[in-house]
Design a binder for these strands. Sequence first.
DNA 1: GTATTATTAGTGAGCACTCACTAACTATGT
DNA 2: ACATAGTTAGTGAGTGCTCACTAATAATAC
Lengths: 173, 173
Amino acid sequence: MTDKKESILSAALELFAHEGYNATSTSQIAKKAAVSEGLIFRHFKNKKGLLAALMEDAEARISKIFAPVIFESSPKNVIRKVILLPFSIDQSEYDFWRLQFILKWQQEYNNPLKMKPLIDKLAWAFSELGYEEPEEEARLLNQLIDAISTGILREGLESQLPFKAFLLKKYSV
Amino acid sequence: MTDKKESILSAALELFAHEGYNATSTSQIAKKAAVSEGLIFRHFKNKKGLLAALMEDAEARISKIFAPVIFESSPKNVIRKVILLPFSIDQSEYDFWRLQFILKWQQEYNNPLKMKPLIDKLAWAFSELGYEEPEEEARLLNQLIDAISTGILREGLESQLPFKAFLLKKYSV
DNA sequence: GTATTATTAGTGAGCACTCACTAACTATGT
DNA sequence: ACATAGTTAGTGAGTGCTCACTAATAATAC
């Protein structure tokens, strides 16, 4: 991958995440990336292709983040690690996650199945811990994590910080 | 308000909610509303003004929905009513709420203070019921309601239905 | 010397918005 | 009662501009 290609990707990510896909023009991207506009189309064919390239990273990144939870063998640690997930995201990755969350509102990119492995693992953990309805507990916590992540991205990490200790205590993990 | 003006508003709401604001052109709106394109600008000055008109309704609608909770005097009923909120939204209002949730990602329209009265009332209810950290509990439940509403709008009412009974039971309301 | 990477200079389509105008209605003067 | 004057609602072709995208050409690398 050439420097300029990467530069296009990072400029596009930043603009898509903050202005939105449709509100961002290819000329803006080229300008921010300090690159000719034509180069975008050489590397990514079209604007949609550029977005698709950004989304390809998503799969890998999400798997990487989920891995420590999936391979955790202690039920309590599973829940603990899930609760800590949104608080462990590095600020340099906010744009990436912002884009993910914005695109969830566009059918084309909304795929709830992405979360399946995590929810299954959570359900297993709750089941192990003797919760009455582990499936519901798992999906509930997942929704909560989603909501807290949204809160962090929209209102900053500090705004959600109280939930960290609170949830760990609530679930006794 | 004339028929055509209302027709413009409802066409714009539908398109903005499903395609997004930037992805919707004024000509599309005019076509869907069966109205000349110029009329949009006579009534709303510009495209932003049309969106602003749609958002003006929001304040009123949100207050109306919150009222039964705010004026509830029984703590348990406050919590119960809040949990039931997202499940009581009529399908004819989905577009309206979709637009609200999409716009939350645009700083300009993201105003967390809208929820303040509801959270305060919830905190009062949790406090009355002897919860240890009523403030956190209130904000947590609020986040959950937000997440469930999101789930309903994105994946349908049925997908979130299990949470209804589950939450009512969990909070013993 | 020939791929590959890049720039430059376009292109037509579609965008938000304007403008000159008409039609229908309302208020006023006699 | 009726002409006159003024206002509001509505039209649709036209505006300049920006859009995503392309083709020809240049620079660079191996």
